[in-house]
């Protein structure tokens, strides 16, 4: 029995633990009989506590407002102002490009190089739409470190003419099931904005997203998360990998 772990039960019950502490606690519970009994007891004892709230009459029109909002979710395209579905490329059974980070590093050093990163990706991947005649400028390049799981990769922001594109390369991604997707988030001081969604059958690959015009603020972080479906407006699933810019 690990007393220090057992003492986290209150914060676990109230969802106050960080993702890492939460999963450590769950591992601990699996082997700690005392915590298992206590948790089961607390759950049983609090199961009916919501009933003390009685039965209030909801505000007029709430049912209509709520059901409209629920069913409207169906109508909303999975693209937020930042994500363009057309530019999302599926990366089925493509190999990872081990040269991509090196290339990006070279680009960063050599302003004169002006090589269009995404156009090279296009040569390798037929389904990436890119205009190779436009000169590109590498705005940022980072290595993505694993957060939950073992996924890692790189992310680049490329200025392509008037367009800003995000290139993400990833490997060791967890398997997807049902509607699950990976989502790329750009984060600034106002929080995360969804840059795009992708799927991969082989848990690896590279993908290019085009951001709408005017979206080239100073991002502080980039992250890739594992989402239940492509509709998440904020990260709901595990963050798989991330990096500061």
């Amino acid at each position: 029995m690990n007393r220090q772990m057992c003492d986290q039960l209150v914060d676990y019950f109230n969802g106050q633990l960080s993702e890492i502490d939460n999963s450590s606690f769950e591992k601990h519970v699996a082997t700690c009989e005392e915590c298992q009994i206590e948790l089961a007891e607390w759950k049983a004892l609090t199961d009916d506590l919501p009933l003390v709230s009685g039965s209030m009459t909801p505000p007029e029109g709430m049912k209509e407002r709520v059901l409209n909002a629920v069913f409207e979710q169906e109508q909303i395209t999975p693209i937020t102002p930042v994500a363009l579905k057309d530019s999302i490329t599926s990366i089925k059974k493509k190999k990872v490009f081990p040269w991509l980070p090196a290339l990006a590093a070279v680009l960063m050093l050599s302003v004169g190089a002006n090589i269009f990163l995404a156009s090279i990706v296009k040569n390798q991947q037929q389904d990436i739409v890119a205009q190779s005649e436009v000169v590109d400028q590498l705005l940022a390049y980072v290595n993505l470190s694993p957060v939950v799981g073992e996924a890692s990769g790189t992310a680049s922001i490329v200025k392509h003419g008037d367009e800003t594109r995000v290139v993400v390369q990833a490997n060791s991604l967890p398997k997807l099931s049902n509607d699950e997707v990976y989502q790329v988030w750009l984060i600034d001081e106002n929080g995360p904005i969804r840059a795009g969604t992708f799927k991969s059958d082989s848990q690896e690959g590279a993908v290019v997203f085009t951001l709408p015009e005017g979206i080239d603020q100073d991002w502080t972080q980039v992250a890739v998360s594992h989402e239940p479906n492509e509709e998440s407006k904020t990260p709901l699933g595990n963050v798989l990998m991330a990096s500061n810019f």
């Binding site: 919501p50 009933l51 709230s53 039965s55 209030m56 009459t57 909801p58 709430m62 049912k63």
Partner: peptide
């Protein structure tokens, strides 16, 4: 569940 969920959320 409308009333129960609303009442609890209000509580």
């Amino acid at each position: 569940y409308e009333r129960l969920v609303y009442s609890f959320a209000y509580r």
